[in-house]
Amino acid sequence: MSKKSYRQAINEALRQEMRRDPRVVLIGEDVAGGRGGSAGNNESWGGVLGVTKGLYTEFGPDRVLDTPISEASYIGAAAGAAATGLRPVAELMFVDFIGSCLDQVMNQMAKFRYMFGGKARTPLVIRTMYGAGFSAAAQHSQALYPLFTHIPGLKVVVPSSPYEAKGLLIEAIRDDDPVIFFENKVMYDDEEEVPDEMYSIPFGEANLTREGGDVTLIAIGRMVKLANEAADRLKAEGIGCTVIDPRTTSPLDTATILECVAETGRVVIVDESSPRCGMAADLSALIAEEAFADLKAPIRRVMPPHTPVPFASTLESLYVPDVNRIISAVRSVAPQTAERVA
């Protein structure tokens, strides 16, 4: 056990799983970086943000495969390889690039098992970066996990911390279905205690990162961190919040969400993805349909506006949900002082 960054936790999960299972291979653009360059340095990058650093050196060119900038071919190749005996981990550098290869995800890997009458297994992981906060603008900042959550046959993981990232990635690699694994690019340097051993966190099991009796906060990915901070500050003013990190949007732990809603009757959903047809809308529908009688206040959603992600830092900071907006939303639905259970 030692402090590890989100980046190190992911790297360690990949390394340990590649040591454990020779069928696990990395595929992606510049996952090593430098092949064919005049410097002769075949691992000059280790991923565009250094997440896969050192893996080429340890496992060599047959296990760490740099690709041309050619998402449709290599994401599709990952699907074909998974259906025929390998367990690929493909990197789609930024999830925004899904536009170049969605067919291979949506129509191929996601549907093999069902279309083929349950006879296919497609054990692959697509690791991909998401999220605003780096002034990376409209084509490198989206939080597109709802797009994948919408597609039956895919599992969708959005880890909220280094501990979560390692355990969920190991689970993803061992899973026999296609898994889309969302890494928030702003979190790579976040640190916490992460076991050195291999461990796995099951999918579809939400994590309660805070417990309080007044308001239920549901947050996804990096938003969990902000929701925790909001919950800690609200506790000081006597409002107790439960924070739910669903961990996976598909499968979704509806039971835990509904249990918590039944306890508090007040819900704030914090989501970094676009508001229309997004996770917050999906969760709101779930709660409205299944827990209407438990609700004591309207469901509140803290989300970006329905715009592309802007470039200028002033605009971007207005775009992404922040702690103050979460706190305001919670206050707007929190019970009167006398009724609080904290």
């Binding site: 599709g76 074909g80 390889a81 390998l86």
Partner: peptide, 11 residues
């Protein structure tokens, strides 16, 4: 064709 690149990689 992309799937076949993957199958060939497996082989």
């Amino acid at each position: 064709p992309p799937l076949i690149c993957g199958a060939a990689l497996s082989h």
